[in-house]
């Protein structure tokens, strides 16, 4: 093999870099994200139910928001009929955030944990917190 030594040194450095993050965070307890659903509006609800089931929202809210925005902006639709037959205005700013008025404790909690930075808030206004 040509340059065997150089290749092995390279490989060792590569593997080292690869396992470095795992090594550094080994044994450290990292708090699980805990999104809060205790806003005044939610507290007053008789049945604490989001647009769709909690499981669906947890896994598919981003897909749903994408579909909503295309449907609203591009097809002129405004109403979303949920699985339970209830109808909602498709609006992040005017529907979602009316209940979830605690962006920091709700949205950011998980988004920060998984290090995603959705750019929704570059345009959409977040609710005034503490209000």
């Amino acid at each position: 093999m040509y340059n065997g030594g150089k290749i092995f040194i390279g490989l060792i450095i590569f593997v080292g870099l690869l396992i470095l993050p795992f090594y550094l965070s080994m044994g450290k307890a990292i708090a699980k994200p805990d999104p809060k659903v205790d806003t005044p509006v939610i507290k007053q609800m008789a049945v604490k139910q989001c647009v769709e089931s909690k499981d669906f929202m947890k896994t598919a809210h981003m897909q749903m928001l994408n579909d909503w925005r295309d449907s609203v902006v591009r097809e002129g639709n405004r109403l979303y009929t949920a699985a339970d037959g209830k109808s909602y205005d498709m609006s992040l700013q005017n529907t979602c955030m009316k209940c979830h008025s605690n962006k920091k404790q709700f949205c950011d909690e998980c988004h920060n944990f998984v290090a995603v930075k959705p750019y929704c808030w570059d345009c959409h206004l977040m609710p005034k917190e503490g209000a």
Binding site: S71, G76, R78, L79, T81, D89
Partner: peptide, 13 residues
């Protein structure tokens, strides 16, 4: 294949 039936314009439109 998403269910398009779930989306509708507002009747007030």
């Amino acid at each position: 294949s998403l269910e398009a039936a779930q989306y509708a314009p507002d009747p007030k439109t």
